[in-house]
């Protein structure tokens, strides 16, 4: 994708993730070092009033990181800022979306593209939302 092809209001390609499975939460706990048991142990989740384990907020942020690196390349992500708005449950299907806010030409035939980004569930509810900046080349 090239920055010259984008203008404010444009949507960028969405990323649809696989349904959230317990094994993914266990893998993410291990890979991230976040061992909060509400993400992996149903008894702990129930003890705080949840019906079952919930996904790490940082996992949905990581999905947004994947979405941005698919847009701009792994080295093209400059900034990502989110708020965690709602819980992500097992079997939820998360889709990452974004729209262009601003295109600011930078050095070396590239631009900083500022985007509104969010992750939504299968009901269309935003679970994690914020703003990002990526570097995109020009042509």
């Amino acid at each position: 994708m090239f920055y010259n092809e984008l203008k404010p209001g444009d949507a960028v390609p969405a990323l649809v993730k696989e349904p959230i499975q317990k094994v993914q939460l266990i893998k993410y706990a291990g890979a991230s070092g976040d061992y909060n048991l509400i993400h992996t142990d149903v008894e702990t989740a129930r003890s705080v009033g949840l019906p079952d384990v919930i996904a790490h907020g940082m996992l949905s942020m990581a999905f947004l990181g994947q979405f941005l690196s698919e847009l701009a390349g792994a080295e093209g992500v400059k900034r990502l800022k989110v708020k965690f708005a709602a819980m992500v449950h097992l079997q939820d299907v998360i889709t990452c979306k974004g729209t262009v806010k601003q295109v600011t030409p930078a050095d070396g035939n590239r631009a900083v593209v500022t985007l509104d980004v969010w992750a939504e569930n299968q009901k269309g509810e935003q679970v994690t939302a914020g703003e990002a900046e990526v570097y995109l080349p020009g042509h």
Binding site: K17, E18, Q24, K27, Y28, G30, A31, S32, G33, D34, M58, L59, M61, A62, F63, G65, Q66, L68, S69, E70, A74, E75, V77, L80
Partner: peptide, 25 residues
């Protein structure tokens, strides 16, 4: 391992060349 847990198949991460944006967590 971090990229695998996210489900991000990028070869750049599979090789461990660059870390995903939320890796500092």
């Amino acid at each position: 391992k971090f990229a695998e847990a996210i489900g991000d198949p990028s070869p750049v991460y599979a090789r461990g060349d660059v870390a995903p944006p939320t890796f500092p967590t």
